[in-house]
């Protein structure tokens, strides 16, 4: 019964991922950032599940499950824990120029659409829109990484970039399952490494603001 709507629903999920990316760019509270990230991961999981149904490609259900369990639940909860233990849950990041960053993000979305749509005229609509949205999510994740100074937010930017990768992978027919598996695994490793680094940095510098790290290098910057 949903066959006629497959494009619209896929579009809906992908677009929510993108919207949530903008939310990440805007949000300044760490808990807020974590919640939005969890929501984004949930949207990615839904998108994967829907693609599994629409393409009749059951392996994507596994992708959806991985996204749901690890990225929507385990990672946000773990980060929540870390933030509480580090006593930075009350910190409000001083992010300068949020409005400009958002405008720049809009420009990046426009660039992605301009880039992807003319290049993929031979592919189906589903793939085209999906790729454009995925590229936008990826670029916005990168933008978040460079516009934030708190290490936790930077890592969340990286993880949201990875959401963009998954989004691109599920939209393309016949993408080998092992790719998604390895991406998921690498994210997990990255998460562990980052988590350890947070504690080490905090131990040494009493802050997670990487700005202080830069000053500590003893060089001009």
């Amino acid at each position: 019964m949903l066959r006629g709507l497959e494009f619209d629903i896929a579009h809906l999920f992908s677009s929510s991922v993108l919207i949530l990316s903008f939310g990440l760019l805007y949000q300044r509270r760490l808990f807020g950032v974590l919640q939005i990230y969890a929501l984004q991961a949930l949207a990615v999981a839904c998108a994967a599940a829907w693609q599994a149904y629409a393409q009749a490609y059951p392996q994507l259900y596994v992708t959806a499950a991985i996204a749901l369990v690890f990225k929507a639940i385990v990672i946000p909860v773990a980060f929540h824990h870390i933030v509480l233990r580090l006593h930075i849950h009350r910190e409000i990041e001083t992010v300068v120029g949020v409005n400009m960053t958002l405008l720049f993000g809009v420009a990046l979305v426009a660039l992605s659409i301009l880039l992807v749509l003319p290049m993929t005229t031979t592919s189906g609509n589903l793939t085209r829109e999906n790729l454009a949205l995925a590229l936008s999510v990826l670029l916005l994740g990168l933008l978040m990484m460079i516009s934030r100074r708190n290490a936790v937010s930077q890592v969340i930017g990286f993880l949201s970039l990875e959401n963009g990768l998954i989004l691109a992978a599920i939209g393309v027919k016949g993408m080998p399952f092992v790719v998604e598996m390895s991406v998921a695994f690498s994210v997990l490793v990255a998460f562990i490494v980052f988590g350890m680094f947070f504690f080490r940095i905090r131990e040494r510098f009493d802050t997670l603001d990487v700005h202080y790290l830069e000053a500590f290098r003893g060089e001009r910057h």
Partner: peptide
């Protein structure tokens, strides 16, 4: 040689955006 990680990332990001824009404009 002496930039911060964030500056390096910004430069790479900028380079990526420029290259993508070139592809979008030319291709």
């Amino acid at each position: 040689q002496h930039m911060t990680i964030r500056r390096y990332l910004s430069w790479m990001f900028g380079a990526l955006i420029v290259l993508l824009s070139v592809v979008a404009l030319v291709g």
